[in-house]
Design a protein around this nucleic acid. Structure first.
Lengths: 202, 202, 202, 202
DNA sequence: TATGAATGAGCATTCATTCAT
DNA sequence: GATGAATGAATGCTCATTCAT
């Protein structure tokens, strides 16, 4: 149906997005290897050959999906600020994180799968580190500002907490009363970053 | 070479264990679908046909592996106690958890893969819940005893923290200075379960 | 951009020639089956659909290419002469043959491929025989005039020699010092057609 | 049916030979690319998967076929002799060549196809040169002994003649009255290697 | 005339599983 | 218990060809 180069381009973009959306969902649900090209084309309502008009291989498709999703995810964080996070900004940060996860559940499911099985996409871990570095740096500075004597360790603890919560959110979204739980995680974060009393002996 | 029924049985058991060990490692490293029966038999030094003498299918093999690993893992926890955990016991608990993970890295890698992609083994999540229920119950009681006004929520927070840390341990064992990090996680746990001060407004 | 029917016709002709030239080169280099329509259109700078505006199928394209090349090749031989070849004309004949091959290397590479693998183009061999018949007849007469008692056999020998040399020229043009080798072949031809002495007993 | 390692090995060898024979015939007739694995398995009466129990790929199959055929072909030539060919031996040589070609027509058809289209099997030409080198060296010495002042050039002429004749034999076996033609080629060879009279001016 | 998105049959290859020995 | 040849369905991918524009 399209004709002009512009319409054509627009058409291609939409079609590609359709394919990527379908593929992401299937990859997330069933795994990369267990999802066949046929399944994708069937669900997307296109022919098998057409996939290769848009992607050079199944692997390439996965890479474009993760790249796009990462960009989509991180463009929401405003990281151009020069100062250090205020408490309010930190709170926003955590909340924003959960909101993004909740709106891209399929991607985050795929994210964990790829993290855990690095063989599937060689570059995935590096890509993630590169993208998340600026964010982690902001948190690091925030922890320093808040008086942490071991910001690296505290960052690790905080990351574990949030990553673990996201994992639960992704794996068992139904048993996760999201509003309340986010508040709990947020409170836990603040409790962890406040100046510590004497820790228990172990 | 074995002859008596008893020796025969012993022989079968050892062979089966060999196959399961090899398969677990390969499943963990490469993923269930990406690991072929051929790879397993090659690494185990057996013929392809023999696999089906011990397992009815590849899927069945996976199920036996996870079942066995779960039993292996949880038999280490002494859960027959009737009372409620002391602080020392709780500490032991957490430390024991990390020790077990570190000694069964392959299984825990597979654990996350199966958690995240339920299509691979339908029953996995239920099996896990059933097995971990008694443990979570103990922690629940411990939180109550420690004065928690929301033991369910606090349990979730604690689980997130520990699960998140284990994920890091499994995914990036090299960048995880395990001794120190376990202490940090332990401290964080105690900080989270001590009676809360006024939380920050958000 | 062309408008008048005549310009249009001219345009079509040029475009068709472009496609055929590109296709011939690719067919020769990579083989008919291994060369895709996409490769041809890419190299010719046209769209995929356009090919079918000029040819009804890939097979048809091949046939038009070989037909055209044959005509091109044989129109250079002046075969309207009524008499029999002189020695000078025979020499010119052989030299002309090598010149033509050297100027149409791609076609002659394809020629051998189609000769050897008749499945690719059913009609190729017949077409060749039909085209080369008048030439062979001239040589036949020339051999008779030169006193051959077995012109058919001698024609076969001569053809083998020349065809074999052309094969070398086409397959390994670099190791073929063409000037010298053509002289050698020419001398060999004359030696073969001169009245034979007593052949060796075998 | 087989059981002992020896029977098994024998069984494998026969099966492999069966596949290679069928494949050689189809490759020769239709070309490498135009012959599908399905065609081969259908004609060989085996399942598609079994091919890959014997060959790692279609390409590998081709390579094993050419390697085996070369060895088969050249083991017939007794090249261990230290002296130089006698006339009788040279005659035997040429006759043997034609006999071998006639008994392995499919291979020689494939031979020309691979020669002409080097893209199909990269190593083919080198393999051929390596195998035929000792033979060509013997002819070279024979030409020298016979008084050739340009043995290299004469070798080329002789090769062209024989190669050309073989090409005809392979491409059009029906129109080639083999007995007579071999004699003609043999006579032509001797005529070409006898001390030349004054060549014609050109 | 010219485009290129779309098709679907066909390809080489893989792999869990079977079974005669 | 153990072997490995054999199967065939399914996979990712290619490509000549069509057709709406």
């Amino acid at each position: 149906m399209p004709r002009s180069p512009k319409q054509l381009e627009e058409h291609r973009k939409q079609k590609k997005k359709l394919i990527m959306d379908v593929a992401l969902e299937l990859f997330a649900k069933g795994g990369f290897h267990a999802t066949s090209i046929s399944q994708i084309t069937r669900k997307a309502g296109i022919s098998k050959g057409l996939i290769y008009n848009y992607f050079s291989s199944k692997q390439d498709m996965l890479e474009e999906i993760t790249e796009t999703a990462y960009n989509e995810v991180y463009k929401n964080f405003d990281l151009d600020k020069d100062g250090v996070l205020t408490n309010e900004e930190f709170i926003f940060f955590i909340k924003e994180t959960f909101r993004i996860v909740r709106e891209n559940m399929s991607f985050w499911q795929l994210y964990f799968a790829l993290m855990v099985q690095p063989g599937i996409q060689e570059s995935f871990s590096e890509k993630y580190q590169e993208k998340s570095k600026p964010i982690l740096n902001q948190i690091y500075a925030f922890l320093q500002k808040n008086g942490s004597t071991d910001p690296e360790g505290d960052l690790f603890v905080l990351s574990s907490l949030v990553e673990g919560a996201i994992l639960y959110l992704v794996v068992a979204p139904d048993i996760f009363p999201s509003g309340k739980m986010e508040d709990k995680i947020l409170q836990a974060c603040f409790r962890l970053i406040s100046t510590p009393e004497a820790p228990p002996k172990n």
